[in-house]
Design a binder for these strands. Structure first.
Lengths: 372, 372
DNA sequence: TTGTATGCGTTATCAA
DNA sequence: TTGATAACGCATACAA
């Protein structure tokens, strides 16, 4: 192997070394059957010897296709988005596609720049995960049959129709939220609150589904708390607000918030699940080993990433974008919601124990945003 | 805004629409001061009106530079790598660089394909995170002054010299491990074990530092457990092995393993920290809100990502790769290691309580790989 | 201040 | 079975 072929070798040089034309060199390396065995072998060897690496830019320019996919997500450091990204990258790599990632941090300006970037790079397909842009905006830069919206979060989309102008992947937020409520009711909880995050479509969908399911039930007073988009960063602050008027159980927008809130409640001297039950959403890996382990709705994050690739590649190679999909979710019942009667009080676990407040909570009029 | 300019507009068309040549169009959009104000404005408008988006491939081909960086990491779904990726992407975007990510999953074949991919795309710089390839191999495909190795994990690198052939970023594993040991000794722990992961350089470095610090101390018998590279996936299995011969405290290779192990120990009826103290490594976000909260070594993951970009961009724009760096780490003491005497036994917290076994543990002869 | 011509590295068309 | 040629879209050297 040569030490470090840094003046990049071109196909032409390889061809010359093999004593053929550039065209023949190209065909030989592409495995074109019209090229004779010996010639092919000579070219291969020359390429190997010279350390030839094809130039993707030149190839893309000529072929008018890049075999590149763009992925816009919120934050690579977020467990859910990390899983989606991992699924996406793996599926793309398996099909020979390169992936360009951009994190948008829920910032419209960054999301727009990401679209611009994808357009400049002529990505063959684009997936937008939890984008807060109006999907119509994406279509000004990306052709509609090469876009997949996953868990679209533009507030206007809370209505939840799947008649989007582009491909769409969702997990069934409403079903997951409903299943959580039913589980809690079955377990005997009656006062149930929802702890929301930012002003996104998925928060609105989950919150509304929770509140609707509660209204349709025998549940007693309930309430929605708004933790704000970054509530999970300060579980204690959220816990303090909630502890002033504690329901029997809390359904959190997602696991991140639920885990932070559990910690905050513990810091307030409250014990989960003895003093309050908690359920999350997503089933991130650490939900399975928290203490107590977290009841949550398993949303197939990695599969969403893989599916986005399958849909895009289907469109690229098949010419048509496959139909939109709503993925099923599954409730995973763990220790954090055993039911209000199921705790063995002979084995106290908490520190400072404050008696459960049983307050009358007013029913909720919910403003978009998770307000109280 | 036009509905969807999908037959991509070229610079030539924009120029024609503006009544100038392609060259003038190019210069106008590039803000070349030689172009008169009115002309520039006409070109800009034409570009806007036609929905012109420059073609990155053509530009790269012509400029012989791509403004693209490659990032190879182990797994996008891993919290530490997610943080590094997030820092990397953010820093790159801020400087106008596009990022291509590849996850290598500790698989040499995938890592090699990633290098090949970066080479084909003519990335201006490449960062390899926790790569298990021999660094020399990278240099056959990437020029050495455009590579940064972050937390290199090729087994041969355990020796820890920083005289690598390429740029290198490390956090100070040995210092972190040593600080953890000192903290545990100060807290009163005497029987301390190390729970290792795979056969990587960083595992070897941490393990050796722990064992060395123990040997140099008044600590009593100690032991190293090998959880294997994927031990954190089955905390219970690891816990069972360790529970048979439980030290007073365990230092884990990383937080993922520590959190899984805490859960496994709890499933075995053991209580952390009453029955055993636990320390992790990395300070991933959930280490701060586990129950008990995890003592750990804060390693600046996002900063590693940002620094990698700074070094590469320094090389690209300054011509020379900045010197290698060892980043300091910081011990974060939390609830999981209060010291063996500091638990209030009047407030039992565990379920089934097995009395601490106080066995004589043999000193460890450690094989590379986390021995025994 | 602007235009003309050229080439970046590939692949595809056409001809031999 | 192979070669000559052109073109993908852009930016620059040189000319005007």
């Amino acid at each position: 192997m040569p030490p470090a072929p840094h003046r990049r070798v071109t196909l032409g040089e390889v061809a010359r070394a093999a004593g053929v034309s550039a065209a023949t060199g190209s065909r030989a390396l592409a495995g074109d059957p019209r090229i004779s065995g010996p010639t092919r072998e000579r070219v291969r060897r020359a390429a190997e010897r010279l350390g030839y690496v094809p130039n993707a830019a030149a190839r893309s320019l000529r072929r008018q296709a890049t075999r590149t996919l763009g992925l816009l997500l919120v934050d690579l450091a977020d467990p859910v988005h990390g899983l989606i990204a991992a699924g996406f990258e793996e599926a793309a790599a398996a099909r020979g596609f390169t992936v360009i990632f951009v994190a948008g941090f829920n910032d419209p300006a960054r999301e727009r720049r990401a679209l611009q970037l994808f357009a400049e790079h002529r990505t063959d397909g684009v997936a937008l995960v939890s984008s807060i842009l109006d999907p119509a905006e994406a279509l000004t830069l990306i052709r509609s049959d090469r876009v997949v919206l996953a868990q679209a979060d533009h507030p206007s989309l809370a209505g939840y129709g799947n008649d989007r102008p582009v491909g769409s992947i969702r997990s069934d937020d409403a079903a997951g939220a409903g299943a959580t409520v039913r589980h809690l009711l079955d377990a005997g909880y009656r006062e149930i609150g929802y702890v929301g995050a930012g002003p996104t479509a998925s928060n609105a969908t989950r919150r509304d589904a929770v509140l609707r399911a509660l209204r349709d039930s025998a549940a007693r007073p309930r309430r929605a708390f708004a933790a704000g988009r970054d509530g999970w960063r300060d579980g204690l602050a959220v816990a303090r607000r909630i502890a002033r008027d504690l329901p029997e159980a809390l359904i959190c927008y997602d696991d991140k918030l639920a885990l932070a809130l559990m910690d905050g409640l513990r810091a307030c001297g409250l014990d989960v699940p003895r003093d309050v039950g908690i359920a999350g959403y997503d089933d991130i890996p650490f939900a399975a080993c928290s203490n107590p382990r977290l009841t949550t709705v398993a949303s197939p994050s990695a599969e969403i990433g893989r599916l986005a690739v399958r849909m895009l590649v289907g469109a690229i190679e098949g010419g048509e974008l496959p139909p939109s999909v709503v993925l099923p979710v599954e409730l995973v019942v763990r220790e954090s919601t055993p039911g209000p009667g199921s705790i063995d009080y002979t084995q106290p676990r908490g520190g400072e124990v404050s008696p459960r407040r049983v307050t009358s909570l007013e029913p909720v009029g919910v403003a978009p945003g998770g307000g109280r």
